[in-house]
Amino acid sequence: MISDDTLLTVSDFSVVYDVDPPVEAVSGVSLELRRGEILGLAGESGCGKTTLAYGIQRLLKPPAVITSGHTVFHDASGEDIDINALDAAQMRAFRWDKVSMVFQGAMNSLNPVAPIGRQLEDVFTTHRPSMPKGERRENAGRLLDTVGVGRDRLRSYPHELSGGMRQRVMIAMAMALRPQLMIMDEPTTALDVLVQREILLQISELREQLGFSVIFITHDLPLLLEISDRIAVMKDGRIVELDTAERIYHGAQHAYTRTLLESFPSLTGDRGDFVRGAEPATAGSASEQTARPDASSTEANA
């Protein structure tokens, strides 16, 4: 499924929030994403993972400033697109068509006063203005079928759907134009494990069928280990480790990656770090600051 073909090259990417004092949210990130690959982006709140995801699509607003770096999109047509060099009109045409996004808390980002069918059709009205009305409707219905909501819900309003169904609608919307890359920011965090599992299976299946790449952002490392081909671990704006899921699981190199791994007690295995009645040694406020990585090891490029 994953080719050696590179889809996206991010090089030396930095974002600063220009407040007082300025905050460097993303510093010198470089990574390559392959066609058809699921790349997990792991890290805790404030590590810069969302800023990075927004930054590479130029979705950031002031006071965020991209201070260095390039993002090059290697289109299926063979053309290389430097995302930072696009003008407003080109950018508008590029977004959603080539790269789409499922936003954090996406299930609350549907318009509450419009039926979901109409919201799906909007995508085509904007990006495929020549498409006839009947075809728009047909496509919207097919998308709902694909994500398991079913076309009989075209006329439903968001409040008539469960959280899981709304999230699927958002995924359908992100898939509408057959993008080559979908960026998903905590797409299942607000959902139950059962619904989460269904949606993850669906994303994997669709990826098999349609061959798009995914950047999957979450703090849930066990989940990433199961679904990702490779995982990038972010801390303080830097990628501290980037490797295949298997190698991260078996032999994480960076202390912070190991801390993250140990933060999740194993469901069926040993107790690991979680020892009932353990004495203060590890449990104290110190753990709030554990694993500040030695600043020397900073970047890991694939």
Binding site: E44, L260, S263, F264, P265, V275, G277, A283, E288
Partner: peptide
């Protein structure tokens, strides 16, 4: 945040 969850749970257990 995930890296402090176990610390708080361990505290509760203690």
């Amino acid at each position: 945040d995930v890296s402090i969850r176990l610390g708080v749970l361990n505290l509760l257990a203690d």
